[in-house]
């Protein structure tokens, strides 16, 4: 079995009081994990903790990715540079993973344009991000992670505001990362999206994280245990 990219050991996350306690899970390359649960329960805090932006209250996590560019993160508000162009934003992702060489500018530009084409926004490459619609901005954020090619991608409701066809475009792009071994952890509000794309579900209930395979989750939800 492949080595995990992330191991959470007795991890408790929260700000002053723990929101989720005693998490013990491992994440392997190529997995797509959807975190489900009601608003305010700690889903965002969990991925902010994994991304290193919030300190864990107790326990530890072991992130086995390269320090520079190994982790991709799409925050809830997307984290785009609004006054810069679409291409500039996407190239930030490529920048983290390309080593210094004479070809680096060419390679960066190539990766940027490939990602933009895959997300269907290549014609917007020179537009400032602030001019784009919410859905287009989500595609830019995804393209940035696509150009980065991280080992672990964390995304906070990145499929929100997207219509069905755009969800498919975005997820097709994410699938290319997954095929190359990227693990994805995404916070989702829509159970449908989780069931369509995820391979594992982390359901937050109370202050506990329940870990399910997709099959187990389907049996559980179809069997009416949630009611």
């Amino acid at each position: 079995m492949e080595d995990s990219v992330l191991t959470l050991k007795n991890l408790s996350v929260g700000y002053d009081e723990p929101l989720i306690s005693n998490i013990n899970v491992e994440v392997f390359p190529g997995e797509i994990i959807a975190i489900l649960g009601p608003s305010g329960i700690g889903k965002t805090t969990l991925i902010r903790t994994i991304s290193g932006l919030v300190r864990p209250l107790s326990g530890s996590f072991d992130l086995k990715v390269e320090k520079r560019g190994g982790l991709g993160y799409i925050p809830q508000r997307l984290g785009l540079v609004r006054h810069a162009t679409v291409a500039h934003n996407v190239s930030l992702g490529a920048r983290t993973r390309i080593k210094f060489s004479l070809n680096m500018w060419k390679e960066r530009s190539q990766r940027t344009m490939d990602a933009l084409r895959m997300l269907g926004i290549a014609e917007k490459s020179n537009e400032p991000v602030r001019r784009l619609s919410g859905g287009q901005q989500r595609r830019v954020a995804t393209a940035r992670t696509l150009a980065q090619r991280p080992q672990l991608m964390l995304a906070d409701e990145f499929l929100g505001e997207l219509d069905h066809s755009n969800v498919e475009i975005v997820f097709k792009a994410v699938q290319t990362l997954v095929e190359n071994g990227t693990a994805v952890i995404m916070v989702e509000h829509h159970d449908d999206n989780a069931q369509l794309f995820a391979t594992r579900i982390w359901n937050i209930k109370g202050d506990t994280l329940e870990d399910f395979s997709l099959e187990e989750w389907n049996i559980r939800t179809l069997g009416g245990e949630e009611e």
Partner: peptide, 9 residues
């Protein structure tokens, strides 16, 4: 945007 950039490395 700062948080995303930092997390990206």
């Amino acid at each position: 945007s700062l948080e995303a950039s930092r997390a990206m490395g």
